[in-house]
Write a protein that binds this DNA or RNA. Structure first.
Lengths: 217, 217
DNA sequence: CCATTTCTGAGTACTACTACTCAGATAATT
DNA sequence: AATTATCTGAGTAGTAGTACTCAGAAATGG
């Protein structure tokens, strides 16, 4: 046994998986110890073996890439995760960042970018596909606003924030009322108070606001 | 007179215009016969002269780049159009494609990419900034779905899909009506037809659906 | 003890969207 | 020439959410 970096590659598309494995094998420091085609198998291997880097496709049978991360996150993990995906979905990107995923690579990137990503993550740094830099900038901006400004969400009470979260999940007032065991009138009042505190107005104003700001809820 | 390719450059920002003209002048096959600062002048020159390629900024005084294209589209035109813009707006991109624009370049691209774009369009091929390839892929996917699948978005018409996109951007029916220059009743009917085709029902059903599926629009 | 905040519930008016029907104009297809 | 699809516009009814006011109960804090 050498001190090579152990890598797991998970992608349900054989051709893509082979491409990934081949390009990684060309690096002498790297050792692909497993390549699998679904999330469940990937999770099993990660839990039972000493995997340094796990390269996970987002769309996989049985368990997607993020679910794999979520299920290993609980225990003390030594594995770092890299998500590979075809789609630039901002919500998925946000969720991946929250889960501590260190690499996020689009399949439209060159294969060599994947190697760059692996090396970067191994150094403990983030590697995000350039095409997603927009999202990163957005989040940074959000955090700044959140830290400094008192205007908005910070002034909401606990109940109000809970309701706003449910609104962001596209629940109707009736559904929220049922979930919290209160009258729909109460929810209506809370929604109004929230609207006033956040200074949002007009049709579906809360729903729109909640969706746009759900990352800071 | 030689048989050089005649080019018009339109951009209201003098510095950008100079940069574009300079880089194009370095190509011996190309001849910049006019550089102007607003859409109206650009349109006039295109109509009265023999312009092969028109490089149009999107945001210009008096008449924007797409409006210039729209106004020359009617007559038998010999000019091919390339739109240059700062913003990645999917709707504008879609509209440009519908108008038959052959090139779409982001200002964040390298200047040399513009030359590549000009040469590509001259060959009769499309040139789209790589950063916008996502949008192109989306459209392709929609067409595939359109051909095969009967369930969902694929069955929507172009207008319906455009409206659904605007809904996903949280525009109200009134805003959409204004944007598309039609009655709000028309938008209402389209929304209803979309709801039926997608089999979604209830309050804000379309908005919820549009937001959840906006990646496939 | 009193004041404030928060949560709860209700009444009322208005607006936006959904749900349904109808219909004329246009363009493409058979 | 007739059919079909699409886009356009309108009418009408019902529902959800916004906007505003009022008010009682419980908890917090001076």
């Amino acid at each position: 046994m050498s001190d090579k970096t152990t890598i797991l590659v998970a992608d349900d598309h054989p051709l893509v998986r082979k491409g990934l494995v081949d390009i990684i094998r060309e690096e002498s420091d790297f050792s692909v110890v497993a390549d699998v085609g679904d999330g469940e198998t990937a999770l099993k291997i990660i839990k039972e073996n000493d995997i340094t880097l796990a390269l996970l496709d987002l769309d996989m049978p049985k368990m997607n890439g993020l679910e794999v991360v979520r299920n290993t996150n609980a225990s003390n993990r030594i594995t770092e995760f890299i998500i590979v995906t075809m789609h630039k979905d901002e919500n998925i990107f946000d969720e991946a960042m929250e889960l501590g995923v260190m690499g996020f690579v689009l399949k439209e990137s060159a294969l060599l970018d994947v190697v760059t990503c692996l090396k970067t993550v191994l150094k403990g740094e983030y590697y995000i596909s350039p095409a997603l830099s927009t999202y990163m900038m957005k989040n940074r901006k959000v955090q700044e606003t959140n830290a400094s400004g008192t205007h908005g969400i910070g002034r909401l009470t606990q109940t109000e924030r809970k309701i706003l979260k449910l609104v962001a999940e596209m629940k109707s007032s009736q559904e929220i009322a049922d979930a919290l065991f209160v009258s729909i009138r109460t929810i209506g009042n809370h929604r109004n108070n929230i609207c006033n505190k956040l200074d949002v107005h007009g049709a579906n104003a809360l729903l729109k606001y909640a969706i746009e700001h759900k990352t800071m809820l």
